[in-house]
Computed example of a mutant assay.
Amino acid sequence: MSTSTRVPARTVLAVALVSGGLLASGAAADAAPRGKTRAPSYGVERVGDAFASSDGSSRFGTSALGIADSGVVLAGRSDGSRYLGRPTRTRDLAPVGDAAPYGVHAPVLSPSGTPYAGGYQALVRWTARGVEPARLVEGEESRFYSIGLGGANDAGVVTGCSSYVKVGWPFIGSFRDGVRTMTWPKDFGTCSSGGISRAGVAVITQEHPGFRTHDLVYPRAATMTTAGIRYLKAPAGIGTSADAISPNGKYIVGRTYLDESPTGVARLSTTRNPAPLRGAGDMRPVAVTDTGVVVGVENGRAVSWANGRKTDLTSVSRLPRGWVLTDVAGINPKGQIAATASVGDRETAAVRLTPQGRARR
């Protein structure tokens, strides 16, 4: 006589997400490509030369931090200085001075090419007039402790997370008219930001709560506007992170988690369960375009994903022998990618990848 064991629905759903071969109930699969799609090849241009210290004893590398729609790259040097540049010329960002007495963290770049950065109780941007501090909403200054900026759009709306020990406050608002912190619908905890769309919709991730008052699964992805925070939909027992949003707001990509361990890459939504990106593997998404092309990092290599196929960008880029693309910072509407290349442990370089032709079927 045979016997059967009933498996809880939650377990079946978790296995489906981990396997990557099935979808959660209500999720729609990304369309598989018809025929074979080949990724474009890329020309590689270095942005900013490696340089030596004043006494010639040390040599510093550079790394990419972002890319504007025009192709201008934001990059940083290993000594902490930052600059804007194209392959033919660069311009150093001015010191922040009194606008951020304790310095700033890694800056971000708006689509039009304005750099912004956050630091200890400081939020600044660089303009033709110099370094400008943001206006913080009166009475909330104490919440802006260690500010990690996640993104800025061309309307001057900025977003990110401010943290203090195990507590984090997501923030959003107009740089000029007032930036304010937001309150999580449930629990308190640290957070991270995945950027902001042209319309001012930001994506954020609520991470491990320092003070748990609800039986929720973490991490927990959400969208945020000046009107409030809205959690993205996920099945019971599954965590999610929102790592990037496209400029038009159509695509939100992130990762799914089981017992706080990542299980795959997915397209997220406020109304539908996560839809796995087939073929994306274990990549960590960094940016996504208006057409759904994703760039990110997997196992220390810069990768891209489109139409169900993941590509190691080093394999399709014209790099000098021995160089590898180890990180990616963004992609613009032209398909240009800001990335960091390295050769062993000796040197890193900020580079711009430019597609040499459209993807061919």
Rank of each mutant, 00 (worst) to 15 (best):
Thr62Phe: 02
Ser58Glu: 14
Gly56Cys: 05
Asp55Lys: 06
Asp69Thr: 14
Leu74His: 01
Leu65Trp: 06
Ser54Asp: 15
Ala52Tyr: 11
Ala64Trp: 01
Val44Ala: 11
Ser53Thr: 11
Gly56Lys: 06
Asp69Val: 13
Arg59Leu: 14
Thr62Cys: 05
Gly56Thr: 05
Gly61Glu: 03
Glu45Arg: 11
Ala39Met: 12
Asp69Phe: 09
Ser41Gln: 11
Tyr42Pro: 07
Ala52Thr: 15
Asp49His: 10
Ser63Leu: 13
Gly56Ile: 05
Val47Tyr: 00
Asp49Lys: 12
Asp55Cys: 08
Phe51Gly: 10
Leu74Ala: 02
Ala64Tyr: 01
Ala39Phe: 15
Ser41Asn: 12
Val72His: 03
Ala52Asp: 13
Phe51Gln: 08
Leu65Met: 10
Ala50Glu: 09
Phe51Asn: 07
Leu74Met: 03
Ala50Tyr: 12
Ser53Gln: 02
Ser57Met: 08
Ala64Glu: 06
Val44Tyr: 03
Thr62Asn: 02
Ala39Leu: 12
Ser41Arg: 14
Ile67Ser: 06
Ser70Ala: 09
Gly61Pro: 05
Ala50Gly: 07
Gly66Leu: 00
Asp69Glu: 13
Phe51Ile: 10
Ala39Tyr: 11
Gly71Ala: 08
Ala64Asn: 04
Gly56Met: 01
Ser57Glu: 10
Ser57Pro: 09
Gly43Leu: 10
Val44Thr: 12
Phe51Tyr: 15
Val44Phe: 03
Asp55Trp: 02
Leu65Tyr: 08
Leu65Phe: 06
Ser57Ala: 15
Asp49Glu: 15
Arg46Ser: 08
Gly66Arg: 00
Gly61Ile: 03
Val73Tyr: 01
Ala52Gly: 00
Tyr42Asn: 03
Asp55Leu: 06
Gly56Arg: 05
Ala64Leu: 03
Val72Arg: 11
Ser54Thr: 13
Phe51Cys: 04
Pro40Trp: 08
Val73Pro: 09
Thr62Gln: 02
Gly61Asn: 01
Val73Ser: 04
Gly48Ala: 05
Ala64Ile: 03
Ser63His: 15
Leu74Gly: 00
